[in-house]
Amino acid sequence: MAKIIVVTSGKGGVGKTTSSAAISSGLALRGHKTAVIDFDIGLRNLDIVMNCERRVVYDFVNVINGDATLRQALIKDKRVDNLYILPASQTRDKDALSMDGVERVLKELADDGFEYIICDSPAGIEHGAFMALYFADTAIVVANPEVSSVRDSDRILGILQSKSRRAENGERVEEYLLLTRYNPERAAKGEMLAVEDVEEILATKLLGVIPESETVLKASNQGIPVIHDDQSTAGQAYSDAVARLLGEEVEQRFIHAEQKGLFKRLFGRTA
């Protein structure tokens, strides 16, 4: 049976699409047949982050409306086998995602043998975000260590616990926190909310901490999900998060400030 995972946050710009691209790639790299769907109707971006923007012919709304088959719309990733992208439509009709239509597409993917379906949610709590989370079995709430993001994450957790299909059936969506753009040095100095603080406020299981890293922008510049860069801390952190998502016990890394030696302390700033 396919597992439906929503990547959501409430607030925009915290790294939902970056995380969706990395996590779906990570699952496929481990051999799982994975589809990743862009729910941001009107503001399609997953395609450009995953470097398939010039291969989009049909989109999610075309499939829902019956203008194209799912097979025609799915774009096969060029880097990893087993990974397929369903791009968002650029229509301005925000109600184009009907609940029946979304359910049909998810079911067809499941029947097609997909093991994981990643739903990349738009920002906000409007229709698109609601459709992305409604059918989810698992939710990855992406947050930055910053007040507005944490507050919005709590709102989204509330919606998952009351408005999702699982909630309506008296079940729970499995919720995880993914803290991105984390800077352990600033947290150690008391300039940034520490991972423990965010965990405590949101009372949600930690999937991983992605350290702030230059490689994240470099990766999206080139359309290569950052998880492919196994030399970078962000890439390694996403790999760990994928392992935890698959039920493996992996110790948290990148959450504590590096102990700097005298040499680094003196010359570290210029490095």
Partner: peptide, 26 residues
């Protein structure tokens, strides 16, 4: 400077209050 209350602690305290309030309304 470190003797001053750090800003992350202020953030945490403010968040705990507003989140509790909003959960109650929810």
């Amino acid at each position: 400077r470190n003797n001053k209350k750090d800003t992350a602690a202020v953030a945490k305290e403010r968040l705990q209050i507003i989140v509790a309030h909003e959960r109650n309304q929810r």
